[in-house]
């Protein structure tokens, strides 16, 4: 299960936050935990360089892309390698939508589109689509190219 997907700006303000199977009262805890993880480790990181951690039976993979930091949290079959796959889809889609690693402003400009893409990538805690070109078509309600 993909428990959480969180995108923040460089100072830790939340831009996107989606949880699945995480009780509401635990969400705040996760948010501050992830943001702290980012502030502690992401300084000076290269774009899309992956960071990984585990906390109890839960895995966390996170990275930085332009001005935004992306975190994904998973457990069971969504271990560090599966999460790396998920985060790769997310970052490549964001780059695609924004045409480059986004500044915060650019990210917010494309906010609606990014939300649609995330909706195609992760739904109810399950990875649904992994190909950025297909996702690009899906958010415009176009069938996948190979079909």
């Amino acid at each position: 299960m993909l428990l959480a997907l969180l995108i923040s700006n460089s100072v830790g303000n939340i831009l996107v936050e989606r949880y699945h199977g995480v009780p509401t009262e635990e969400r705040l805890h996760w948010r501050s935990f992830l943001v702290k993880l980012g502030t502690d480790n992401l300084k000076g990181a290269k774009n899309e360089e992956l960071f990984v951690a585990s906390h109890k039976s839960v895995y966390i993979v996170y990275t930085v892309l332009g001005d935004v930091s992306v975190y994904v949290v998973g457990k069971d079959e969504y271990d560090e390698l599966a999460l790396a796959e998920v985060i790769f889809v997310i970052t490549s889609t964001i780059k695609d939508v924004c045409a480059k690693p986004p500044t915060e402003r650019l990210f917010l400009d494309k906010y609606g589109k990014i939300c649609l893409c995330l909706d195609e990538i992760v739904w109810t805690g399950i990875l649904e689509n992994t190909d950025k070109d297909r996702i690009k078509r899906l958010i415009r309600l176009k069938p996948p190219a190979e079909f």
């Binding site: 460089s10 992401l42 300084k43 000076g44 990181a45 290269k46 774009n47 930085v64 332009g66 001005d67 480059k100 690693p101 986004p102 500044t103 915060e104 402003r105 650019l106 917010l108 400009d109 906010y111």
Partner: peptide
């Protein structure tokens, strides 16, 4: 942190100021 290339400082200020 890696920053995207910005030609002028002014552009950068504009971006930060006018979040949608």
């Amino acid at each position: 942190m890696a920053q995207p290339l910005v030609k002028k400082d002014d552009d950068r200020d504009d971006e930060a100021e006018y979040s949608p």
